[in-house]
């Protein structure tokens, strides 16, 4: 194993981005009593809840604004179409069964010291690593 060496700026941006994610999740709980789990919010949006739809619309707005202002490169390393669709199906079924995805378990769940979320996080990071070890990267 080799470790990619990151510049101090890489570390700072990675950490600051995390703080913003935590700020959003924190505001949702403190002001509205809501968990900022995206798969849960997505299900509410499917059921026609306006506030859930508006939250999801905010995601590309915020990401687009930051990418534009910072002049960041558009991510191009997407997997082949069949792999994207299959990944979406697996992620959808998995987060439905586990009642949460990365944001619900690995951010909000860990933040309230939930053992259930810790188990989910360890399991999905492990199977994610196993799949990458077997099938390789996305390109």
């Amino acid at each position: 194993m080799t470790v990619v060496s990151l510049t101090p700026l890489d570390w700072l941006l990675s950490f600051s981005g995390g703080i913003l994610i935590g700020l959003a999740a924190g505001i949702m709980m403190l002001a509205a009593g809501q968990v900022a789990g995206i798969s849960g919010i997505f299900q509410k949006a499917l059921s026609g809840r306006g506030e859930a739809v508006v939250f999801l619309l905010g995601l590309p707005l915020g990401a687009g604004a930051v990418s534009g202002i910072m002049g960041m490169a558009t991510p191009e390393a997407f997997a082949a179409p069949w792999r994207l669709v299959l990944a979406g199906l697996l992620v959808g079924a998995g987060s439905y069964l586990a009642n949460g995805c990365t944001s619900g378990h690995a951010v909000c769940g860990l933040a309230r010291f939930s053992k259930r979320s810790l188990v989910a996080t360890i399991v999905f990071i492990s199977t994610g690593m196993a799949v990458v070890a077997v099938v390789g990267g996305v390109s």
Partner: peptide, 14 residues
């Protein structure tokens, strides 16, 4: 606002 901040964090952290 929460959605925008969340999305901004995802982009900033790449």
């Amino acid at each position: 606002l929460s959605g925008i901040i969340f999305g901004a964090g995802l982009a900033l952290s790449q």
